[in-house]
Amino acid sequence: MRRRFLPWAILVIAALAYPLAVLATGAPRFPSRAECVHAATTDGSIDAVFGRFRARAAAEAELRHVLSLGFNGSEVENDGCGLLKVVVHGIPTLATGRAFLDEAARAGVHASLEQPPR
């Protein structure tokens, strides 16, 4: 009886051993969408982001809104994490960026400074 079951037991153990060994260190962790956002902390090429959207229509509506307020150079682009962002590229320093945020707040829109993805 033992001889008959031993080969099958070897197969079952092998089939379970690999996934169990892999999962022993925990399930694979996937980055969340929030981890796509890296706040700007140093001078350099900084992005000002007016918002992230699931639907292209909503992103384009926001784009039209900020363009109408005079924030030229704004565009819609994929953020690489499944969302669309309305963004202005190429802000050279944090000081310029903060001035940009103040101007946006005075115009009634919210923006944030981010490091562009590398």
């Binding site: 008959r4 031993l6 099958w8 070897i10 197969l11 089939a15 690999y18 892999v22």
Partner: peptide
């Protein structure tokens, strides 16, 4: 029904199973 499997086939089969699990991953 009894299905016989030799120990040799089982050992090599086990290697193949782990191989395909790794390839899947």
């Amino acid at each position: 029904r009894k299905h016989s499997l030799s120990l040799t086939s089982a050992v090599f089969g086990a290697i193949a199973i782990v191989y395909f699990e790794a390839m899947f991953r």
